[in-house]
Every structure is written in C-alpha cells, then in structure tokens.
Design a protein around this nucleic acid. Structure first.
Lengths: 327, 327
DNA sequence: CTGAAAGCGCTAACAC
DNA sequence: GTGTTAGCGCTTTCAG
C-alpha cells in the first residue's frame, strides 16, 4: 500500500507538497509541473488515501450513523434509505444500526459509534434510552432524534402528530359507517404508539362508540404470534382493524393468510404505506407519513449541528389519510 | 475528550500501562491496584477509546461494507439485515451502500470504502462492475460476491441456481393446468435475471407451449411505470404472470391496484417471499431463496478471508417453490 | 513555491 | 510490573 511518503521519496520532494496536491489544496502553492508529476506518480503507484490517518489528524471521520429500532419496519427502512441518499450527496457514509428496541443494545452500539468517531447520529430512541442519548451529547456528538421524542433530552426532534393523525383517520372510518373499530398495537411503551392509541380512543368516545373500543396489545418479539392468534377472532368480528404500525400489520397479515385472507367487506387501517399489499378485495386505508421529508429534515438538522449550530427544535410534519377501496 | 495520556498524567504512570489495562491485555503484566486505579479514573474522566487512532495503529478498522444494487428490494434488505446480525456478533460494524445498479456509483463508493480502510466487502456486482471488483482485490481488501457471479473475477460467490428454480416453478404451474404464462422482468443484463428467463423459456418449450412465451422487459428507473402500463393488458389476459424479482412485482402491484387488483383466478409467481402480500384472493406462489443462509455463508467466507485464508469458491443454495392458494 | 517538524491517540517492542 | 520509545499516515503551522 503506497503512502504519500512513498511518492514523495520517488520524486525527491517532501510529503507536505504531495499532501497539498493530493488533497486539492495546491492552488497557487505548488508549481504546475510538480503538481502534474505528483498526480501522475500517484496514479502509477496506485495510491489510495488512508482516510483513517486523515480522520485522526483532522478530527472528523465523515461517517454518520442512523440507529433505528427495527430495520425490517418499512418506515424505518425507507427513512434510512433517504438519509443515505442525502448523506451521499454531502460526502458522508452511513453506518446503519438496528437496536431491536433494546436499551442495552442501543447503548452498546452508541459506545461503539463514539469510539469510531462518527461525526453525528440520527437516532430513534429506545423505550428507556434517555441515558444513552445523554452520553452521546456529553461526548459532543451531534444528535437528532426521529419518530419518538425522548423526554428530558435537549435534542432536535423530527416526527409527525400521531394523536391527530390517528384521530382523524378513525373519524373518517366512523363517517363512512364503520362502528366496531378495534385497535391492534405493539406492547411497547413508546410515545408514537401511545399517541395513536389516544387518538383512536378519543375519536371513538367523541362518536359515542365507547362500547366498541378494543385494544389488543401484541408483544414484540417472543410471544407475538401467540398474541396475534388470540386476537384473531375479535379481528374477524370487527368492522375495521386499526394497526398502529407497519410491523404489527405485516405480521398479522401472515396470520390472516391462514384463514383465507381479510374477510370481504372488512376494513383495514394502518399507519404507513401499504399500497403494495392492496392486491386483495378488502377496503384498505393508511396514514401516510412524509418519510422523505422527515429524512431530509433530520439530515439537514444533523448537518447544521455538525457545522456548529447549537439551538435545537422540534419539527412536526403533517400526515395524510389515504383511502383506496378495492371493493 | 480525555485520552489515555490524560489518565496516565493524572495517575503519574505511563500511557502504555493505561493502554494495557484499557485494552484488556493487562493479565499478569499490571499489578492489581494500578489496574483498578486506571479503570476507576477512566470512568471518572469519562474516557472513550479513540478507535481511529487504534485502527491506524493496528491496521484494521473493524468495519466491513455490504454494497447492494437496490436496498428497497426486500431480498437485499433482508440479506443486509442478516449480515449485520452476524457482523455484530463478530464485532464488526457495517456500512451499507446502495449502488443503484450503477457501475459508476459502485466504483466511486468502492474507492471511498477503500480509503476508509474497511476490512472487507460483500458486494452484489453491478452489470459491468468487473473493473471495480478487480480494484478492490488489488487493494488487498477481502471480497465476497453475492447473488450475481462476476465473470473474470476470482472471488467467492454465494447464490442460488436461478435457472433450475425458475424452470421447476414454471413446470409446476403447467402441471396445475396453467398455459398462458408470461414473464415480466427488469431490463437489466444481469446473470440471475437471464438465468430465470432461460428457465422459464425452457420449461415452456419442453411443454410445447412455445406459442405462449411472452417476455416483458421493464426498464429499471426512468420509464418503469410506462413499461408496466404497456404490459398491463397482456398481464390481465394471461393465466399467470411470472415476476423475476421482488422489485418488479411490487411496482406492478401498485399499478394493478389501479384496476382493482389481480383478477380472480389468475396466478402470480414471483421470486422471493411475498407472503405479506397475500391478502387477496388470487393464487400467489413464490420461489424462496434461503436468505439467512446466504447471508451467513457470505459473512463466514468474508471472515475467513479477513483471517487470511486465500482459496475462493462458489456456493449455490437450493430454493423452494411455495404455493399458497387463497382461492 | 517547498520543506522540516510536530502531533492526532494509540499499540507494541524493548528496556529496566 | 512499568516506562520509554518509535511510528501508523496524514495535515498543518512555520521557516525559508
């Protein structure tokens, strides 16, 4: 592996000169002939920059990380994708991390990332992840949180109004004549899910449909399928099922497939895009979060912080309810 | 940010001693009291290792990269996920890169990764990516290719027998009475897609159904929706549509939703798991690739290479045809 | 315009 | 057991 020293030796010049031209800072500081020689020799010797050495010296790695709780959730998958696209444009590489909703894993990974000297972190906080957030901040690593607010932590936040989105969508269902609307949510104590539940409950109460309110809490991980099985009958008897997140929806669908699909005439409401799943004949609706915008905003905020800006803010984007009936 | 030197100064000892205990190499080389002091002081001063310095010194970054062509393809998404899980166990962080099927992007990213001194790369080669593969090898970076063989490059390969899988699945369709079976594939000149096409064509010919052979080539990226629209009528008139990859399937489904879903009684055959999409009443079948196994094998091979093994091999895993009719 | 030298934070010989 | 030293490959003052 050839180094700058190697090409300096070959040309009998100093490595500082080589560094100047190879890092594009030679403008008016290195003569044209020398510059050309360096460039050519670098090519001949198949030189590749050692970014580690550079990073150590300049104090920044051009690496950022995005830590999500469940990469198999399409919402997070897409978010990660969009962040990567933005990062690429800005010259950053991204380390994608899956915390699997575990505080311990999150913390462990955050420590690793700090040691890798990432320039910034975009994180979906785990249920009780405040301490890890604080550690990241204490280490001076720019941080922006996404999807879930982490109470007690002064960091940028980007997300949507989950309460409002859920309430509006349920009201639309009621307007369209549906009555027995039940909710299936993951058994995780995280703000978005709690907010969506509140929205559902309030919408039902306001329409005096209290008696139909049903909350099915599905365990995340171990026990998921069992819980889903137990809720199946209730689901089949309802007019509509409101799934609070993509993951619980897709898992439930695998289950529902066993009994021949969603019953004709029944309505499914879900957070996040389910268009590709709408091959059937049931009435499917979903609440769309502007993922690309969220991702872009999150990255922009991170970029600002990495450039030294200090204030933090909370940015809430509007959602849309989409109805596409195939009946 | 406190360094080893800082804690050595505080304790009036040398930084080598500090290094020894902090890197867990103090066994029988540092006295117990000193060791405890170091550990405690490190905690007090909120010390975090500078991994860049360590990597520069020891010559390895504990970073690997997986470069896929389309992260929004669930097959690659899952593969990446499994690789990450394996990598985590082995103490590696992974940089996920999306080449977007572009040779140029791949090459550019590969150069960046080399400068970041990644310890290894798992790559899905782009259509004409041999030169980039060679560059990676020339730089001494361990490489394993996945999903597509890159001709002319001596590197490990992990994948499935695409010809055989496609042929078998089509034969099953024919056995079950389907005749007008058409294929929709992306317009990319890559081995797996070509092999799947060959398998389809041969199965049809062997059943003397030559007259029903229809190949619809769908552009990837710009023009995709247009091509899909143009093929819609033919699709609706067929007995079955064989989608050669997950991506073309999901895109087509968005399109099909416009006309009210897949017609009753029609069959859809697809490469890769589409269980969550089986909410409808149509006959859906798919060819399952053992993604977890593929990912694990790829990572194992990479690990071996990173540990100095040299030989290369090609590993082909069996697929399964899954039928689950909801009719 | 070019070079010498210092140093980013760490590890690993090698002395003592 | 512990300290000294050299150096990984680069960037960046500072002289000349």
């Amino acid at each position: 592996m050839t180094s700058m020293q190697d090409i300096a030796d070959r040309l009998k010049i100093s490595k500082s000169t080589v560094s100047l031209v190879l890092s594009g800072k030679s403008e008016g500081r290195v003569s044209e002939p020398v510059k050309q020689q360096v460039l050519e020799t670098a090519r001949e010797m198949d030189y590749h920059l050692n970014g580690l050495a550079r990073s150590l010296r300049v104090g920044s790695s051009n690496l950022i990380s995005v830590i999500v709780t469940d990469i198999s959730n399409e919402f997070f998958g897409n978010m990660t994708f969009y962040i990567q696209e933005e990062a690429k444009k800005a010259g950053y590489l991204v380390l994608t991390i899956n915390s699997n909703e575990s505080d311990e894993e999150f913390d462990q990974m955050a420590r690793l990332l700090i040691s890798k000297k990432v320039d910034g972190i975009i994180a979906v906080p785990t249920p009780a992840g405040a301490a890890s957030m604080q550690m990241i901040k204490d280490q001076g690593v720019p941080l922006v949180t996404v999807d879930r607010i982490c109470e007690g932590i002064d960091a940028d936040y980007v997300g949507v109004d989950n309460y409002d989105a859920a309430k509006k969508a349920v009201k639309e269902l009621i307007r369209d004549g549906l009555r027995k609307i039940i909710m299936m949510r993951l058994d995780l104590d995280i703000p978005p899910l709690n907010e969506r539940e509140r929205g559902y409950v309030d919408a039902m109460k306001e329409a005096h449909l209290d008696r139909y309110i049903q909350l099915h809490r599905i365990r995340f991980g171990e026990g998921m399928e069992e819980d889903l099985d137990n809720s199946l009958d209730a689901a089949l008897e309802s007019d509509a099922v409101f799934f609070t997140s993509h993951r619980v929806f897709t898992e439930a669908m695998k289950n529902v497939a066993k009994v021949g699909g969603v019953p004709h005439g029944q309505c499914v409401l879900c957070f996040d895009d389910v268009r590709p799943y709408m091959t059937g004949t049931s009435d499917i609706r979903y609440i769309e979060q502007p993922i690309a915008q969220i991702a872009r905003k999150a990255f922009d905020l991170l970029l600002e912080k990495m450039h030294g800006e200090t204030g933090t803010g909370r940015y809430v984007f509007p959602t849309r309810s989409i109805t596409r009936s195939n009946m």
